[in-house]
Write a protein that binds this DNA or RNA. Structure first.
Lengths: 239, 239
DNA sequence: TAGATTGTTAATCGATTAACAATC
DNA sequence: TAGATTGTTAATCGATTAACAATC
């Protein structure tokens, strides 16, 4: 493994303080990072020591060129003639994705979706600590879901002041979403993972990073493709 | 409204049998359609009769050019000097997205996420009928969730033969996903909305459309951005 | 008609792929 | 060393934006 230590010491686009530079990387590349992370995690579990961009490209159904190009945005993670050390590369991408950053998350809205998300291993598996849930329903407040307390929404600010969560998962009805988002922003939240069906854009708080998720949009593109494929079949039948 | 009837009769890229052509439209455009649909639905609820690409562009934070370019892939839905008729355009996009196609969906896996999805209004709101759930847990089989029966997974094939669902929402554990997907493909499903954490690619059944959803990936890009913004703050502090 | 706004072409920008020199 | 495979530059492709003629 000594060659990897050498690589790590020699290459890599780093800031003065040694961390990896992320600033100027294109969104397209960033969106692909979690997928690399997943595949490398799988290889790691299978005890693979090394992988070449060409073998990985076959597994992931992307070009080897893209893999090399993407990884190189963050530094030279591989080695000519050898490929990539799976453990090392997985670790580097983990680092990029903040797996070791110790982020904490709260879930606002303890309905079906809130429960489903908080009950999954999604957070812990990615190094994110689940801290608490919040809801307005008196029947839920004070109860426990998946080992976490459900607090009253009024307690949001005091909780944030004490526990400084980084991420808020928003699963409230869309009517409440904007108000809650502003309260979260004021309370110093750093990112909002928004599943409420209201698209959020907090112009007043540009420092808060928002991911608007619309599961319905994804269902609709699936429907589009189903209906379109039916149509093209019908058309080729007619020919 | 007569001008719109005229537009509808005069323009539009249509096949011989009159339906809208979808075949050659770029994926980037298709992914944006559901968002147009949402914003137009909102305008419709607010009783707006017409909208120009430039006003819509301000609402949606995209360029007016992109809106016109996108909509024109499917035909001339607007009118020079007037803009777009909200109801007409919303209807056209609904049609494109298959809202009126009468698709039916089953949910395989009645865990937290399966329940959450099936309990939302997501399907009916988009013209998709929820038909049933399937699970292997004897405690769930025979019960009802959100007004739908939970069947044993063994009944999948017989149910599909009878009710011909178009879409299967897959929320099984990842170990089961591939086998279930193949069974669904054999049973004639047309699309799989895959939330299991296994990426599906059914090479043997290219006619089956698969949408692999990885919520964890989206969480990770949020983490990436949070950690990166912290880093760039730190760096500018140092200067 | 005059003003507005689309539809559409051309120009720009960004992302992907190909190719190959560097190098392990 | 020879073979393999990266890192990186150049070429291609696709998507976005700008501009304006067509036209309602």
């Amino acid at each position: 493994m000594e060659h990897i230590d050498k690589v790590a010491g020699t290459f890599g686009k780093r800031g003065e303080s040694g961390e990896l530079l992320r600033g100027s990387v294109s969104p397209a590349v960033i969106r692909r990072l979690p997928r690399y992370h997943r595949y490398l995690g799988e290889l790691l579990r299978n005890n693979r020591l090394r992988i070449s961009s060409s073998e990985l490209s076959k597994m992931m159904k992307v070009t080897a060129s893209q893999i090399r190009q993407d990884l190189n945005c963050f530094g030279g993670f591989g080695q000519q003639g050898y490929g990539y050390n799976v453990k090392y590369l997985h670790g580097k991408i983990s680092e990029l994705l903040g797996v070791s950053a110790g982020l904490g998350a709260i879930v606002v809205g303890a309905g079906n979706l809130g429960r489903a998300l908080v009950s999954s291993h999604m957070f812990e598996r990615r190094g994110v600590t689940r801290l608490a849930l919040f809801d307005v329903d008196p029947a839920l407040i004070g109860s426990e879901i998946s080992g976490l307390s459900v607090y009253a929404l009024e307690q949001l600010e005091s909780f944030c002041e004490q526990s400084r969560p980084d991420i808020a998962v928003l699963t409230t009805p869309k009517e409440a979403a904007y108000e809650v988002a502003v309260r979260l922003a004021k309370a110093g939240i750093r990112g909002i993972w928004n599943f409420s069906n209201m698209e959020l854009h907090l112009e007043e708080y540009p420092e808060v990073i928002i991911q608007n998720i619309h599961l319905g949009d994804s269902l609709m593109t699936l429907c589009y493709e189903i209906v379109s494929s039916a149509e093209s079949n019908r058309q080729s039948d007619e020919e």
